[in-house]
């Protein structure tokens, strides 16, 4: 349990920081993950869907 305004994990000693915490502590890794997921599944896939749409025949 901790106070949400205080730095918390990893400050108490020299013990090795777990991998998950190291990932979470790297904002640039999180930024890249967010960009990749969004641009692959929403934006990129959506653009491919639009590019593959057949042209509507004129009435």
């Amino acid at each position: 349990m901790s106070d949400p305004n205080e730095p918390t994990q990893g400050e108490k000693g020299e013990e090795e920081i777990p991998l998950g915490q190291r990932i979470f502590d790297n904002p640039f890794l999180l930024l890249i993950a967010c960009i990749v997921v969004m641009f692959v599944f929403y934006t990129g896939w959506g653009l491919v869907e639009l590019a593959m749409l057949p042209e509507a025949p004129l009435p």
Partner: peptide
């Protein structure tokens, strides 16, 4: 600061990434 950023700051990191 030492260790991980506070949870409130981590929430702000989330907001900034988005």
């Amino acid at each position: 600061y030492t260790g991980s950023v506070p949870l409130v700051t981590f929430g702000a990191v989330t907001a900034a990434v988005i």
